[in-house]
C-alpha cells in the first residue's frame, strides 16, 4: 500500500514540476503584479493593524511610536463625533441603496419592452453617458443648476417662487447627493439586467401574448422571474458594500462646513481629520473598524445569497 501511495505522490510531484515548467513564463510575468499586491494591498493591511494599536508620533514613526493597545478604539467608541459619522455613513449608504436599487430594474424592463429597436439603442447610448463623468464634472453640473443664481432658481423665480440656496441649506444636501447619484448611475445600472433579459426565451412572450396576457402580467410572470437571479446578485453586492457605498469622493466635493453634521462620513472624516491633521492612529483605527465591518457584511451577504437564492459573488 505504502508503495502505491509513494508512487502516486511521485507521479503527482513529477506532474507538478511538469506543470510549473509548462507555465514558467507566466510566473516571471506575475512578479510585478504579485509584488504590487504584497506592497500596495497587503502591507497597508498590516500597517493599519499596527497603527491602530499605537499612538503615532512623527518622531517615532510607525514602528517606534508608543504601543497603546485598544486605547484608540476606546477613544472612538466613547466619542460623540464618531457616533455621528458612523450614523451618517449608515444613513447615506442605506438611502442610496433603497433609492437607487429599483430605478435601474424598472428602466431596464421598459427599455427591453420598447417596440422600436432603433429608439431603444439611441436611448441606451444616451442614458449610459452620465456614468462616465467624474464626480467633479457632476458637481460642476449640480453647481450651475442649484446654486443661488442657478438654473433651477431662475425657473422658480420666473414661476413666482422665492429662490432657494440649495447648496448652502443642509436639508437639501441629502436629496441632491442621492439624486445626482441616481442621475449618474441609473442608466448604467440597467446593463446587467438587460444582459439577463436578452437571455429569456422570446417564445414565452409570444405564447403569453396569444394567451391574452397584458403587459403587466407579462412583466410579473415572465420578465421578473427571468431576472430574479441577477436582481439577487446585485442586492448581495449592494449589501456587502453597505458601509463603503456612502461615496467618499462624491461627498468630499458636495459637502461644506454648513452641513457636516449630516454629511461627514467615515471616509471624509479619515481624509480631513486623520490625514489632514496627522491623527494617523485614530484614522487607522476608524478604517480598521470600517474594513472589518465591511468584510463581515460581504461574507454574510454572500453566504445568504448562496443559501437562499443560489447566487454568489465568487
Amino acid at each position: 500500500m505504502g508503495n502505491v501511495k509513494n508512487a502516486a505522490v511521485a507521479v503527482k510531484k513529477k506532474n507538478f514540476v511538469k506543470r510549473v515548467q509548462k507555465y514558467w513564463v507566466f510566473y516571471i510575468l506575475a512578479i510585478v503584479p504579485v509584488a504590487y499586491l504584497l506592497v500596495f494591498r497587503f502591507w497597508p493591511i498590516l500597517l493599519q493593524i499596527v497603527l491602530s494599536l499605537k499612538e503615532y508620533s512623527i518622531k517615532g514613526g510607525i514602528w517606534k511610536s508608543e504601543f497603546v493597545g485598544l486605547e484608540n478604539f476606546k477613544t472612538l467608541f466613547l466619542d460623540d463625533d464618531f457616533h455621528q459619522i458612523f450614523f451618517n455613513t449608515l444613513r447615506i449608504s442605506i438611502l442610496r441603496l433603497v433609492c437607487g436599487f429599483f430605478p435601474p430594474i424598472i428602466l431596464a424592463i421598459m427599455l427591453f419592452d420598447m417596440s422600436s429597436n432603433k429608439f431603444r439603442r439611441i436611448s441606451q447610448s444616451i442614458l449610459y453617458i452620465p456614468h462616465f463623468f467624474s464626480w467633479v464634472i457632476v458637481y460642476g453640473i449640480v453647481q450651475i443648476l442649484f446654486q443661488s443664481t442657478g438654473y433651477i432658481n431662475y425657473i422658480l423665480e420666473a414661476l413666482g417662487f422665492e429662490s432657494v440656496d440649495f447648496l448652502m441649506k443642509s436639508q437639501y444636501f441629502l436629496p441632491i447627493l442621492i439624486g445626482s447619484g441616481i442621475w449618474k448611475g441609473m442608466g448604467w445600472g440597467t446593463i446587467i439586467y438587460l444582459a439577463a433579459l436578452t437571455g429569456i426565451n422570446t417564445e414565452l412572450f409570444e405564447a403569453a401574448k396569444l394567451d391574452g396576457a397584458g403587459p403587466l402580467q407579462r412583466i410579473r410572470y415572465i420578465t421578473l422571474p427571468g431576472i430574479t437571479g441577477v436582481i439577487m446578485f446585485v442586492l448581495i453586492m449592494d449589501l456587502g458594500k453597505l458601509l463603503s457605498a456612502a461615496g467618499t469622493e462624491q461627498i468630499l466635493l458636495f459637502y461644506n462646513p454648513t452641513n457636516y453634521t449630516i454629511s461627514d462620513v467615515i471616509g471624509t472624516w479619515v481624509y480631513r481629520q486623520g490625514l489632514g491633521k496627522m491623527q494617523y492612529s485614530l484614522g487607522a483605527a476608524v478604517s480598521f473598524f470600517e474594513s472589518t465591518i465591511g468584510l463581515i457584511l460581504v461574507l454574510l451577504s454572500n453566504w445568504l445569497g448562496k443559501k437562499f437564492a443560489g447566487v454568489g459573488v465568487w
Binding site: 497587503f42 497597508p44 493591511i45 487607522a284 465568487w314
Partner: peptide, 17 residues
C-alpha cells in the same frame, strides 16, 4: 485577489506606504 476585494488597507496606511 479575493483578500484585496474583501479587505482594504485604508487611506492612511496606503498613504504611508
Amino acid at each position: 485577489v479575493l483578500v484585496t476585494i474583501l479587505y482594504g488597507g485604508g487611506t492612511i496606511p496606503t498613504f504611508l506606504t
